[in-house]
Amino acid sequence: MLDSIRDLYQEVVFDHNRNPRNFRVMADANRTVEGYNPLCGDRITLYVKIGETGIIEDVSFQGAGCAISTASASLMTEIVRGQTEQEAEHLFNLFHRITTGQDDSLDPATLGKLAVLAGVRAYPARVKCATLPWHSLQSALKNQADTVSTE
């Protein structure tokens, strides 16, 4: 089994699942969104602090979910901190297109660190786990719904 699982569960994924980064409540967040996939039971609360210039100054999360959703949330918080809303939006689009397999011409390497999650393409039932944190972030940036689901 050990070979095949690495397509989906790379060591980086296990690492972020064991020790999720930015896993904390943020008292001074100015956007908070609940991401919840009731069929799976994946649940995250995403906290975002956006500065006056539109920079994501801080982002953190809490919750309980599978290794894919936890690692995806953890990686996301590391990467988008310091980005502008537009930069984060662009990355979300790339990530979404690659993980949902909409665009095979895209090289997962363009995702940088996030490329470790590209293997989810081969597991359609698990794509929603990887994208839940990103949809939550998008909702936070656009100040849309307070709760998000990718099911």
């Binding site: 089994m1 799976c40 039971g41 599978c66």
Partner: peptide, 25 residues
């Protein structure tokens, strides 16, 4: 270890189980 990870990792070994709330939330 979340049940969905168990389900996917068992499937990789040919074992089909259900992971989820079983329509009994």
């Amino acid at each position: 270890i979340h049940p969905h990870d168990i389900g996917t990792l068992l499937d990789m070994q040919g074992i089909a189980i259900r992971a989820g709330h079983h329509c009994a939330m």
